[in-house]
Design a protein around this nucleic acid. Structure first.
Length: 517
RNA sequence: GGCCGAGUACCCAAGUGGCCUAAGGGGACGGAUUGCAAAUCCGUUAUUCGUGGGUUCAAAUCCCACCUCGGCCUCCA
């Protein structure tokens, strides 16, 4: 089996990814979304890169046990008092939903109680899963296909509170956590000398920067400024549970430690997230997990995706370059193009998401789709083994080499493009059956061929009669063309363009699609 | 302020000491095709790699300085 080498944040070099034991599945935990709002394309870049890693492992013949959490505990918004101050994010989401409801902007067929945090979380979790499936996130497809395993594949912290409490109890019992004067349970970072190994921080250096974002009152309760919260008793929090330390809610990091352990065991092979998770989130996870399990390791391999910028600028709602996946689908972009645009740049570079790039991806995918249809139509039921390897079979080798080299997706894509551009004589000489298999193997990682269809023929919201209208105009234009009435024909084409509909005159008649945007 | 990444053509983006007078895609331009378009097919499109120095027989790749952008320094993918 070919080795996949991936940069490991922990060791700061490219390490081979392999299961902890021969023949076992690779255990893989991904930090998933919070469900206080729709996930944006930056979130999805991180999830999709994890998906590409998982699919690459599967292409190489590994089995992968992949888990991605969906965080539904209401955390706090205020960053000036980071140890539990500010406003509950679930409350903010509830207000947003209440406003949308009032304005009649809630999607048809949905009714959410804005005062019920569980309902809010379910609402956004449902939307996330829809987007995730559209984009081909395999773990979401798997959870959908096996509802009985959904909670084990995409766990929710609110359903795992006992496991978190058990882990915190263990940490308190073995001296790695303590109850402070304010009743809050903190992890004692000085009890864990390896704290900082993942992020490259040291406890001393953290102390220097610590003064800026943490309120003095909170700091005064802790033994060390870097100590972080495990449980906060708080009767005012929207979501709260009974615990040995009083009714309240868990700290931000403990959920992943508890769920990873519960579902994948004390040590896991890969753990992924966005680059901002390295510190403090993943650093704290390592500390909690190792101190609770007593193991020398938590995750063997840490995989972090760098952030995304949009049109060269940091994505922000204010500058108008903020996109959720569903925003793009609604504008007519295919999930395939969104997926490819988000995975085509190396995961350790800042990617620049652009509308032009999305269009580029769409054209590439359309070409791959044509090549795929062509192979499909030529593939014989029984392969002719005597034929030499064709362009796609050869491309699969360099495609795989590219991916094995720290997930070089750009190189993999170039290999596929070159196969599609191979001269017809070469293509005809090859065994179409094997060529098709090679192409599907490549798509098993890229994951675009089955997703190259958006809502393009679905009429846009508020205009259900569009399809019939378009068909009628096309029929009129076809008649005009038959009569060689070019002026009328062009007038209809312009009218369709004004409606946001592009047409193509092909051998099988005229086809149409909505223009994105 | 401290620590970390990154800057390659009009755009996206590989390449990390000689195979680079720099992959792949898009765009643009020229040609084929088309009533005209669109789509498709063929061809052309960086002697140059943020800027200035340095090391080396050899640098996009290593070193130094500067500029610009991004991340982290207890919300964040």
């Amino acid at each position: 089996m070919q080795a996949l080498r991936i940069h490991n944040t922990l060791t700061r070099r490219a390490d081979a990814v392999e299961p902890h034991a021969d023949g076992s599945p690779v255990t893989f935990y991904s930090c998933g979304p919070t469900v206080y709002d729709d996930a944006h394309i930056g979130n999805f870049r991180s999830f999709l890169n994890a998906d590409v890693l998982r699919r690459t492992l599967e292409l190489l013949g590994h089995r992968v046990h992949h888990v991605m959490n969906i965080t539904d505990v209401g955390h706090m918004t205020d960053d000036s008092s980071a140890d539990g101050g500010g406003e509950d994010k679930m409350a903010v989401a509830g207000r947003r939903i209440a406003e949308a409801k009032k304005a009649g902007k809630l999607p048809a067929g949905t009714d959410v109680d804005p005062g019920n945090p569980g309902a809010i979380a379910d609402f956004y979790a449902g939307r996330f899963l829809e987007d995730a499936r559209a984009l081909g996130l395999k773990v979401a497809l798997e959870a959908h296909a096996h509802p009985e395993r959904a909670d084990a594949l995409m766990p929710r912290p609110t359903r795992c509170i006992p496991q978190m409490i058990a882990m915190i109890e263990r940490l308190v019992a073995n001296g790695h956590a303590y109850v402070a004067g304010d009743g809050v349970v903190y992890f004692d970072v000085r009890s864990f000398p390896a704290y900082g190994a993942l992020s490259g921080n040291t406890i001393d250096r953290l102390r220097e920067g610590a003064g800026e974002r943490i309120s003095a009152e909170n700091q005064a309760q802790k033994r060390h400024p870097a100590d972080f919260m495990l449980w906060k008793p708080d009767m005012s929090h929207l979501m709260r549970w009974p615990s040995p330390w009083g009714e309240g809610y868990p700290g931000w990091h403990i959920e992943c430690s508890a769920m990873a352990r519960m579902l994948l065991g004390d040590e896991i092979d890969i753990h992924s997230g966005g680059e901002d998770n390295i510190f403090p989130h993943h650093e704290c996870e390592v500390a909690q997990s190792r101190c609770a399990t007593g193991r020398p390791r938590f995750a063997r391999h840490w995989f972090h995706t760098r952030h995304l910028v949009v049109e060269g600028e940091k994505m922000s709602k204010r500058t108008g370059n903020f996109f959720t996946a569903r925003d793009l689908f609604a504008k007519g972009h295919t999930p395939a193009a969104v997926r490819l645009e988000l995975i085509r740049t190396h995961y350790r570079s800042n990617a620049n998401f652009t509308l032009q790039g999305l269009a580029d991806c769409q054209r590439m995918i359309d070409r791959w789709s044509r090549a795929h249809s062509e192979l499909l139509s030529r593939a014989a039921p029984s392969p002719d083994e005597s034929r030499p390897a064709g362009p796609f079979e050869r491309a699969l080798a360099s495609f795989t080499d590219g991916l094995c080299d720290d997930l070089n997706v750009a190189r993999a894509i170039a290999a596929l493009n070159e196969a599609c551009a191979a001269p017809a004589v070469e293509r005809d000489a090859a065994c179409a059956h094997r060529e098709l298999a090679a192409m599907l193997a490549m798509d098993s990682v890229l994951g675009v061929l089955g997703r190259n269809r958006a809502a393009e023929h679905a009429p846009p919201a508020g205009d259900p009669g569009l399809a019939q209208q378009v068909e009628r105009l096309i029929a009129e234009r076809t008649a005009a063309r038959a009569a060689k009435n070019w002026a009328e024909s062009d007038r209809i084409r312009d009218a369709l363009a004004a409606m946001g509909v592009a047409i193509k005159d092909g051998a099988q008649g005229t086809t149409w699609s909505r223009t994105a945007g």
